[in-house]
Amino acid sequence: MSARVEQRALPGIGVVQDVVTKCGRRIGVLTHRDGHRELVVYDVDDPDAASETVPLTGDEANAIAELLGAPQLVRHLAEMQEQVIGVLTEQLPILKGSAFAGRPLGDTQARTRTGASIVAVLRQGEVIASPGPSFVFEAGDSMVVVGTREGVDGVASILRGDV
Rank of each mutant, 00 (worst) to 15 (best):
E38S: 10
T114M: 02
G12A: 08
V15R: 06
T108Y: 03
M1A: 11
D59H: 04
T108V: 00
S51V: 05
V146Q: 03
L92P: 06
G132W: 02
T114W: 01
A120F: 10
G161D: 07
L88H: 03
A3F: 15
V136I: 13
T89Q: 06
P131K: 07
T57W: 02
G24P: 06
S51K: 04
V44H: 14
P104E: 03
I85D: 14
T148P: 15
A50D: 07
F135M: 04
L68C: 12
E6V: 08
V145C: 08
K22L: 15
V5S: 06
S98C: 07
R149Q: 15
V54D: 08
D107F: 05
V145L: 06
A9M: 10
A110L: 10
M1G: 14
Q83T: 15
E60D: 11
S142Y: 12
F100A: 06
L56G: 00
R26V: 11
V29T: 11
G97Y: 02
A101Q: 01
E126G: 13
I27K: 07
G86W: 10
A139C: 04
P133D: 11
V152Q: 01
S130W: 13
A99H: 14
G125D: 09
V84C: 15
L56V: 10
I13M: 10
A3P: 11
V119C: 12
D107P: 00
I13E: 10
P11W: 09
A110D: 00
T148C: 02
A139E: 13
V121F: 04
S157A: 11
L77K: 02
D43C: 03
S130Y: 12
V44K: 14
G14K: 12
V144T: 01
R37G: 06
V19P: 12
M80Q: 15
N62R: 10
N62T: 12
L67Y: 10
R111C: 00
V5G: 08
V155E: 03
R25L: 12
A110N: 00
D46M: 02
L122M: 09
L88M: 01
K96I: 15
L159T: 05
Q81M: 09
G140S: 07
L77E: 07
L92D: 00
A63W: 09
G35E: 03
P93W: 09
E150N: 03
E79R: 11
D59P: 02
F100E: 00
V16E: 07
Q83N: 15
F137K: 07
A3M: 15
R25C: 00
D59G: 03
T108N: 06
V144L: 01
G147D: 11
R4K: 12
E150A: 02
V84N: 15
D46G: 03
V127H: 09
D43T: 07
T21S: 08
A129K: 13
S98T: 09
T89P: 14
P71S: 04
E90Q: 01
G132Q: 02
L39Y: 01
G35V: 02
E79A: 12
L92N: 01
V145H: 09
G97V: 03
Q83G: 15
E6D: 08
